[in-house]
Design a binder for these strands. Sequence first.
DNA 1: TATGAATGAGTCTTCATTCAT
DNA 2: GATGAATGAAGACTCATTCAT
Lengths: 192, 192, 192, 192
Amino acid sequence: MTRLVIEDNEWRLILVEGPPLRADAQRNRARILDAAEAVFAEFGTRASTEEVARRAGVAIGTVFRHFPTKEDLLVALMKRLLAQLVEEAGRHDLFGFFRHTVAQAAAKKTAVDLLAGSGLDIRLPDAVGHLEEAVGRLLEQAQAAGAVADSVRLPEVMALLAGMCQGALHGGWDEHLQTRTLAVVFAGFEHG
Amino acid sequence: MTRLVIEDNEWRLILVEGPPLRADAQRNRARILDAAEAVFAEFGTRASTEEVARRAGVAIGTVFRHFPTKEDLLVALMKRLLAQLVEEAGRHDLFGFFRHTVAQAAAKKTAVDLLAGSGLDIRLPDAVGHLEEAVGRLLEQAQAAGAVADSVRLPEVMALLAGMCQGALHGGWDEHLQTRTLAVVFAGFEHG
Amino acid sequence: MTRLVIEDNEWRLILVEGPPLRADAQRNRARILDAAEAVFAEFGTRASTEEVARRAGVAIGTVFRHFPTKEDLLVALMKRLLAQLVEEAGRHDLFGFFRHTVAQAAAKKTAVDLLAGSGLDIRLPDAVGHLEEAVGRLLEQAQAAGAVADSVRLPEVMALLAGMCQGALHGGWDEHLQTRTLAVVFAGFEHG
Amino acid sequence: MTRLVIEDNEWRLILVEGPPLRADAQRNRARILDAAEAVFAEFGTRASTEEVARRAGVAIGTVFRHFPTKEDLLVALMKRLLAQLVEEAGRHDLFGFFRHTVAQAAAKKTAVDLLAGSGLDIRLPDAVGHLEEAVGRLLEQAQAAGAVADSVRLPEVMALLAGMCQGALHGGWDEHLQTRTLAVVFAGFEHG
DNA sequence: TATGAATGAGTCTTCATTCAT
DNA sequence: GATGAATGAAGACTCATTCAT
């Protein structure tokens, strides 16, 4: 660890460089997030932090050391899930991304719940912004290819994505219903 | 519902905005449901039953006499909200009903949340069935008028309705976004 | 219970007269305060609310129903202790009150701790004010009787009372030391 | 002690007002005690050991290496504070020492709190003994000079000192009230 | 020897539900 | 039937202390 100290009789200035987390802590942080994703997906965000700790195989104090409040944990989880979505947007066209994301919705229950608000006041302008940019690129490509009407704009695409995910999640759509519902939306995209 | 309470150890003064009591035997039940709708819409279903009792102007015991568990209260509330939807379906065509319902989504937060699951295991086959029937009639009329493609079936219409309501509610769509998003869905209805 | 209801189509005004607490609740409130006095006197204000409940023979929820936060409990306790002091001031002359109060200090550990601050931000202007008035009357009588120099004012009398109580409490003064210490203070009162 | 910390996941910048480190082996011990004095004075002895470590600029483990329990830390702190008092007793006459010590009471909150007991079972016969000796010498000098009645004995002088300090600390006496209160005590000393 | 992550018992507080009044 | 006090399990969070790195 590098450490720089400048001092005189009245002040001490200490600049400490260092990895913020030891390897074991990194590992635990990831395990906690994994556990949180699973637990909140299964029981909703009302599941207890204790349950998350149990599933992660750590003591409750460890969860709170990494995420001082439950909200902090939810925010961190959300950021990770959004980052994953952005990454996946890079691997699909607009329709594929819709299909894939809606299909995943139930599995990613937490994300949808969190996007939905769920009582907590979570704002993630940056992470959400990145997702919007990624989807914006897909939309441009689809419009350039003539697959989506020019009158369709990004805000309603995002809105439909969110609405479909929530519908899929909470409505328990099966694959067939998902396909038919998306078919309506895609027809809407095509004809404006 | 606005409500003002001033109290000390000897007096309580309660000023409640809202219609006066109905004189019949159901009055407490109705008041509790009204209060529950307002409270759960404002704070979500995590709001306490005590708060519902307070807003209804009855004691907590009275709430539990009418609805033995909190879940019973939520189910009753849900049934009433669905019945209102059915009634409204009778006053619109398919597109108008979509517009109206989505616009109301935020106001009917509770309904959407409950439809969404909210951790509670609520099955309401009957009430939901009635709503499906009502929407089914609207769909038939729209298809008869040539406004909706014949390939569109009731399940995806219901799915889109639910998805749009949740999107509107949790996404905080403004009127403009609502209109544009519904325009895409309506184009999808028209072109299948 | 008297109940006055005025209502029209838009407002309901309900004025409820009534004893705020049922007899059993009154009893529990007193038992909780008694228990709190004993527990906090024994272990300091850091003792747990759970311990207070245990000693009072009620469940933890009952304590919190009566005193929504621990601070509320401490404030209520303080008020009661100050009221007792005021009452006792009516039964002594200035010197007797000092002797009595300082002698009681250890028994009333809580009061002293609370007056002392104890981390909690408790302001009790009214209750403290009443005590000051009571001591003020004792001071006037003592000065009228020529037992205290006219130059002595109420603030320093209160200050000395508080200081002596804390000393007695935390220093564990025995009766002899108490007598001798107060003798010095009383000599100071007499000669200004 | 003023302290500024800026940190993100990779860097921590700590600006500490105060004398720089001593270069000898005791430096951590002394820094911890300095930090503890500041922290406990500011937040009371309920402040966390972690906060002390933070302010000292060391890790929590280092604090516990030097002081195996929190109580050990408090005892060490107490000893140092008492030693400082003894030293100051050598620089004043009895009245000056009283004035000075009472005036410092608020600044030395920790000492007063600890002397006061604070839930911890701390006995410091030696350190307290030295202070008593020092004050005893001041008392003899004052009596030799005729400024204090011969009937006044050391125990009550110590008792009054402690009581005044606690009163000053917890009562928040301003300078004027301090002067007037001490005037009464000094008159008591003079006339026994 | 210093570090700081992990532990887990303990604290305050909430709230669905019960039951004496 | 209505009332509202009592219950107690459960949850979020804290912190003294331990120990692997």
